[in-house]
């Protein structure tokens, strides 16, 4: 079953432009200038039910705009979209009850009141039967460990606490499709890890489809089985993380821990030395040549330790972005 289907999706915004300074103000008052921004520019992909897909891209790449179209908040400029069989921007009640959009930077919790008030409000809004509400709330509250926070006004809570409560509020109606927009933004390492673990557990337990944006690679590598990479409104890669490595990585990095000072001339004959700080050396080698190079290192130098590694995924993604710009 296909949960999300997008074909040739486009969203263009017209954005007012203005020169800085007083003159610019006067000028734009009489002759306003507008620029068309192609936030999403012809994107197509599908997501199957139960999949957990990561959506990566730099700021302004069009990730959030895409999520907002998928959840029915924005009208697209062109293209076809089906989410759970619905056209999102019609915002049919049946559709809204199947989805949720969690925004890391925007809360739907009522700011002045304890979170429990927001939960009860959502219970009424989504018409959740009393028993079901009680059961879901108990599950979510214990999974996210927020028992102690339910009676404190939301504005008195920390960002991490609010994010966990926000997740409870947005999942009470048991949505089948989750759109998560930067759910770990601004959180410390521990809080971010808690959220990640929760998302994985929720996906496994309920079989809900998850589409997640983030610019923290940790979120993506840990969570997603498949990624879509988007830049300047265009989809530049779609597939598994392993496929990224196959397609974009043609080098490996050998890290060596030496016991004696090496002859630098001999060392650079093996491969490109990217860093040297005795006793540590990093050498870049074409993928196919890596095993041979490792053998030669062990032969010619006194080695305490040696590892062959893929370059970090961040670096790979950065390479993809810079290549796509050219």
């Amino acid at each position: 079953m296909v949960a999300v289907q997008i074909e040739h999706l486009k969203k263009h915004f017209s954005v007012p432009q203005r020169e800085a300074g007083l003159l610019g103000v006067v000028h734009s008052f009489f002759q306003p200038k507008k620029k068309i921004v192609r936030a999403v520019d012809d994107i197509s992909f599908t997501i199957d039910e139960g999949e957990l897909v990561g959506f990566i891209g730099p700021n302004g790449a069009g990730k959030t705009t895409t999520l907002k179209i998928l959840s029915g908040v924005l009208y697209p400029t062109a293209g076809m979209v089906r989410v759970a069989g619905h056209i999102p921007w019609r915002r049919e009640e049946e559709f809204l009850k199947k989805i949720t959009l969690v925004m890391g930077q925007k809360n739907q919790l009522l700011w002045e009141l304890p979170a429990m008030d927001s939960f009860l409000l959502n219970r009424a809004i989504y018409e959740i039967p009393k028993e079901e509400f009680k059961q879901t709330l108990e599950e979510l509250v214990s999974l996210l460990e927020v028992e102690q926070l339910l009676t404190t006004p939301v504005r008195k809570l920390s960002l991490g606490q609010r994010m966990r409560l926000e997740l409870v509020a947005t999942l009470l109606h048991r949505p089948r499709i989750l759109f998560l927009d930067e759910p770990t933004i601004g959180l410390d390492v521990v809080a971010a890890q808690n959220i990640r673990e929760f998302i994985t557990a929720y996906n496994k337990k309920t079989g809900a489809t998850v589409l997640l944006t983030s610019h923290y690679m940790g979120d993506i590598t840990q969570l997603a089985s498949r990624v879509c990479i988007i830049n300047e409104g265009k989809l530049i890669f779609e597939g598994s993380l392993a496929k990224i490595v196959d397609r974009w990585v043609n080098e490996k990095v050998i890290r060596v821990l030496l016991t004696n000072e090496p002859n630098m001339q001999e060392l650079s004959e093996i491969g490109e030395v990217i860093s040297y700080q005795f006793p540590r050396v990093e050498i870049r080698i074409p993928r196919a040549a890596a095993p041979g190079a490792a053998a030669r290192l062990l032969q010619k130098f006194s080695v305490a330790d040696l590892t062959i590694e893929e370059p970090p995924i961040e670096e790979v993604i950065r390479k993809i972005f810079t290549n796509s710009k050219r």
Binding site: K68, S71, G72, V73, R91, L96, T100, L101, I125
Partner: peptide, 12 residues
Amino acid sequence: DGELTNFLLRPL
């Protein structure tokens, strides 16, 4: 401020 988004997402 875009707060309207939170309402458009819910069946209300």
